[in-house]
Amino acid sequence: MVESRTRSAASPDLPHPSGDPRFALIDRTLKRFRFQQDALIEVLHTAQEAFGFLEEDLLIYVARQLKLPLSWVYGVATFYHFFSLQPQGEHNCIVCMGTACYVKRAAEIVAALQTAYGIEAGQTTPDGMLSITAARCLGSCGLAPVLIVDGQVLARETPETAIAAVQLAIEASAAAGNGRSSQLDDSYDEEGDL
C-alpha cells in the first residue's frame, strides 16, 4: 500500500533516474500539456530537440509518462519524417528536392553527393561525420536549387559547388582540431577523388 503510493507519486515529478538534465526539458513539455496523451507529438519534438534523436530509452520514458503503449509511441515516432531513431552525423547536408529544385536538376546534386561520400540520401557515413538528406521542399524556390549545409542556406548550387561546400564544412571542423575528422581527411586523401 505504502509502496504503491510512493511509486505513483514519483513518476511525474521526480527527475529521470539517469539524472540527465535534458529530461527536465521533456518534463517541462509534459507539464505544459498536463500529461495529456494527445501531446505525444509535441513531447517527441522536445525530446528530439534535447537529445538529437529518439533512442529507445527516451521512447520508453515518454510512453510511461503519457501512459501510452510502447507500440503506439513507436508507431507515431516512425510515421513522421522529422523524428529520427538513429543518431545524425556531425555535419549534415540537406538537398532540397522540391519541384522547383528538381526542375533545376537537384537530383544531379544528390547523385553527386551520394557518389562522393558513398552513402544514400537519408544515411550517415559510417564514421558519423556526415548525414545527407533529401528534403521535400525548403520553400526557397526562388533560390533553386537549394542546399543547407550545417544550417547555412546555399542558393543556386551545382554538383561541384555542393561537394565543395560539404568538404569545406568537414575540413573546418577538422582544422578546429577534432581528432576524428583528421583521421577522416586521411582516408579521403587515400581515395583521392575528393
Binding site: M97, G98, T99, A100, Y102, R136, C137, G139, S140, C141
Partner: peptide, 11 residues
C-alpha cells in the same frame, strides 16, 4: 501544413 513541393504561400 503546406506540403506541396514548391508552395510557400501559407508560410
Amino acid at each position: 501544413d503546406e506540403g506541396d513541393p514548391g508552395a510557400y504561400m501559407d508560410r
